[in-house]
Design a protein around this nucleic acid. Structure first.
Lengths: 247, 247
DNA sequence: AAGTGGTCTAGACCACGTA
DNA sequence: ACGTGGTCTAGACCACTTG
């Protein structure tokens, strides 16, 4: 007999937060905090729905969400278990950026260029505006512990463009949040190429040394383009980590 | 008045395929085939559930799945629309690999090394075996149109290791499929670094030129590690493209 | 046989946006 | 006021695994 994990949570039926969300969030937190061990059996959905006094479909919706995020594994006839730790605790590896952040260093950004330019054909097409129309071109350099980490080049629609001062103080996405703009999805392309002379100077690396590149087009859920990014990273300080799920 | 799109689909209640799946798949196909325009309004869920003779929760489940995949956008009080094309038709850009595939060239692989080795500490830890235990180490070179595209280095558990001949004929994941092994998730790390002498020779690029690297640990849904990959790509021929959704 | 998760139903009420 | 999607319920039946 294995003792199943019972999530301790109080459901507030007067809250505006959906019931399933009131289960998902604490459960995710419990896993993140290590209050449940990876691989541990979880209380079955019938008991849990009775105990928390929600309907089975509602509880199932919560559990399904956690399965989608890779935190739970369910097997018919067997039960529900917390996913093995490796899956939701991505490998620690060599990214100085990550190490420095863990060590408490804070990243800083410097705006090195901020100007409205006529959009070239390619940029205009991706932004969904006419070629030649104005767009804000911003170049920032990101540092961590005073070491240059990346050059961030962005094209932004003028009507949602953050001010210079705003950008200097906060990240781009914080500026968006202040305008109630939520990025819902983004197309990304990751590649590599040699550093140009200017990039080498800005990042303090040899000319021609490898750079990690990321091009991004970000959308709101309505499909509006809000950001076009062309970023280059020093690969000795930065790498991309993520978990993919197959369907 | 805008005419909403009505999905033409026959629901087979005797099929073993779930009803919602019988809606998801054709809908996805209809969007991929361009039978619906991006941004086009979709029939509301009440009408659609009546028309297809399924319950509203069942239809909602299908639509929600399509929303999760970024194919539909729903707004309360407004309706459901096909997502803008940019979101589900990722940018065409400079990847010779992609171009060559489109042009009909077929990729080939050559197994350059196939041997059982004692696992080093790091490899053993990631594979979930004891250090020194045996593991199959495979090195392949992938070509496209006779140009070397990538060096694929893999460590595999011995009990699911494909034979040399098998690997030569098919891809690694095809070999897994033959053993009824389904990869459910993978942790990936993408970075860049200079080519070593050996890599430069294999990929026919200058020593020290930029390479795109991808390290992957692949899991079954039970959390079992089935593959450990250390791949390097010629960045002039290959890049990673994907869409991310924020929650 | 018993217990698990997977699918499906018919209906209710609510929140939001438009008119 | 109306129509849209969002949430929730109580219960049914099925498929799979284990004892």
């Amino acid at each position: 007999m294995e003792k199943p994990f019972q999530l301790e949570v109080h459901i507030d039926r007067d809250s505006t937060i959906p019931l399933y969300q009131q289960i998902v969030d604490p459960f995710e937190e419990a896993i993140a905090q290590g209050h449940v061990s990876p691989g541990q059996l979880v209380e079955d959905e019938i008991s849990m729905s009775k105990r928390l006094d929600v309907s089975r479909p509602t509880l199932r919706r919560a559990l399904q969400e956690l399965v989608n995020r890779g935190l739970l594994v369910r097997r018919r006839g067997i039960g529900t278990r917390v996913a093995p730790s490796q899956i939701h605790r991505p490998v620690e590896l060599s990214s100085l950026n990550h190490d420095l952040l863990e060590a408490g260093y804070t990243p800083t950004s410097r705006v090195v260029s901020y100007q409205v330019v006529q959009s070239e054909a390619k940029v205009a097409e991706q932004l969904g505006i006419k070629p030649g129309e104005g767009t804000l071109h911003v170049v920032r350099i990101r540092y961590i512990d005073d070491r240059p980490l990346a050059i961030l080049r962005n094209y932004l629609p003028l009507d949602i463009a953050p001010s210079w001062g705003e950008l200097h103080e906060k990240g781009l996405y914080d500026c968006f949040a202040n305008r109630d703009i939520k990025v819902a999805s983004a197309n990304q392309i990751i590649g590599a190429r040699p550093a140009t002379e200017e990039e080498a100077r800005d990042l303090m690396v040899p000319v021609g040394s490898p750079l990690l590149t990321m091009n991004r087009v970000a959308f709101t859920k309505d499909g509006r383009v809000v950001e076009l990014g062309e970023h280059v990273y020093n690969p000795e300080l930065y790498s991309f980590r993520f978990t993919v799920f197959t369907n």
